[in-house]
């Protein structure tokens, strides 16, 4: 009896969590399709706001910039992160443990702090603000995610596979390409998706590091909201959320958290 009561309470709790997480999103998505610009009911379906959004050059430009930055970030972070994971897996060196431990705090540090620190640092070393600074910042934020996902995948890799390949005459490059990479590729894809999502959804760091003229989509939305809500913001936000959730869904499936094979 007691356990079933507990299980029941648990279910209610979970339902509440899901409700408070998704209800605002669903309302926003609904309002992006509602004819009234003042969120008035009854609901009257329209695609007007999506059409208006598609005609808004500022939004489109920001969206393209966001996607491009996210793509560049993904490529760089995935490549660097994978190399780092393989190196951490394969080689023993002084300070390896420390390095591995140091990878985690950036995930937990508030982005506001990270963003401020980066802004100061980039001015200090002369990169300043602008798209290159944004990309460097995003790569730094995304790297730990890639390393963590690829390392998780590598931890189930049997090192004897590499040894077997070498005993059969394969040089290091062939071993990497034919044996190691195929094994960790789900981890790499998942890490890449995480990197994309981290960059695409990034507000604080982008806000601090971008120049006024070329802001990313989240920054542009924030600026627009400060001037006043419009249903087109709902429209673009709905698109972003759908895209981000899709990516996260794929990433967690690829990373196979908890499961194996």
């Amino acid at each position: 009896m007691k356990t079933s009561l507990l299980a029941h309470a648990g279910r209610v709790w979970l339902a509440l969590i899901l409700f408070f997480l998704y209800a605002p999103i669903l309302v926003m998505a609904a309002m992006s399709l509602n004819a009234s610009p003042f969120y008035q009911l009854p609901f009257k379906f329209t695609t007007e706001w999506y059409e208006e959004m598609a005609g808004n050059e500022q939004i489109i430009a920001a969206a393209i910039r966001s996607v491009l930055i996210a793509c560049v970030t993904t490529v760089i972070a995935t490549a660097l992160g994978t190399c780092a994971s393989v190196a951490l897996f394969r080689y023993d060196f002084k300070g390896k443990r420390l390095l591995q431990v140091l990878l985690f705090p950036p995930i937990a540090i508030p982005w506001l702090i990270t963003g401020t620190a980066m802004l100061i640092f980039f001015f200090f070393i002369g990169i300043g603000r602008g798209t290159p600074a944004v990309i460097v910042g995003h790569v730094a934020l995304a790297l730990p995610y890639v390393i963590v996902t690829v390392t998780a995948r590598l931890s189930s890799f049997d090192i004897a596979l590499e040894e077997a390949a070498r005993s059969l005459g394969a040089d290091s490059w062939t071993v990497l390409r034919r044996v190691t990479l195929p094994w960790i590729s789900p981890g790499i894809v998942a890490g890449g998706l995480f990197a994309f999502a981290v960059s695409f959804d990034q507000f604080v760091v982008s806000y601090f590091l971008s120049e006024p003229g070329d802001s990313t989509l989240p920054v542009m939305i924030y600026t627009a909201i400060r001037k006043g809500f419009t249903p087109e913001i709902n429209a673009i936000s709905t698109i972003i959320i759908t895209l981000s959730m899709g990516i996260m869904f794929l990433a967690t499936r690829k990373a196979k958290f908890g499961g194996e094979h």
Partner: peptide, 17 residues
């Protein structure tokens, strides 16, 4: 190095790809 020694080796875990 191993890859140039022209050996064949069988591993305890079989290590099949």
């Amino acid at each position: 190095p191993v890859e140039k020694r022209d050996i064949g080796m069988m591993f305890q875990s079989y290590a099949l790809f």
